[in-house]
Design a protein around this nucleic acid. Sequence first.
DNA 1: GACTGATCATGC
DNA 2: GCATGATCAGTC
Length: 228
Amino acid sequence: MITPATSPPNTIEQLTLRAQALAGLTLGELAQNANIRIPSNFKRDKGWTGQLLELYLGANAGSNPEQDFPELGVELKTLPIDSSGMPLETTYVCFAHLLNVSGITWESSNVRNKLNCVLWIPVEGNRELKPAERRIATPVLWQPTAQQLATLKQDWEELMDMIVLGEVENITAKHGQALQIRPKAADGKALTDAIGKDGEKVKTRPRGFYLRKQFTHQILLQAFYDEV
DNA sequence: GACTGATCATGC
DNA sequence: GCATGATCAGTC
């Protein structure tokens, strides 16, 4: 019987083995073995799948702005897919800092750090399927290719330029080929500090970095062809 | 049907 | 409010 991990994985191989052992199982089976209640939908439990898998893989739960497995340099992400393997949602990467960003470079950015090595765990996410019925697919351990890295860097620099120049309010989810910035908050009333048009401090809605579906789809396809 | 902007739970 | 985990749902 599959049970939650009792300790963090020591190696990437061990982590991969744990993830592969979950492939084909349903979220209901995992939750049942861990004595976790299963929501009937994700309206009020949007991060439930991710937290369930963290438990099974031995990730250190918490809200630190670090990778899930700091010792291994690996980030864990679940990815909802449809029956043909197409991602259903964009993927949240991290919070976007809007102030004191002039010293940050792509190489030292949180986005670059998070995406250095990601263990993607695709999960059936069709809304017609109840959470308990959704099956886990084959995990993908990914490191960005030079080309993907270049695309991400370009998007990141474009977006950060706008932030530095006080154009935060002009940023929409349409910017960026692979990386986009969207509101990220509890509700529309949340405010944080940002740089204004004349360099002054202004209040704006908090933002986060997200990966487009097309980009994550490419990652899954790439893994598929590597196997074949 | 896809996409963008909005929203939910939790811990500190 | 920030940061983690993300999905919802109205609009295009």
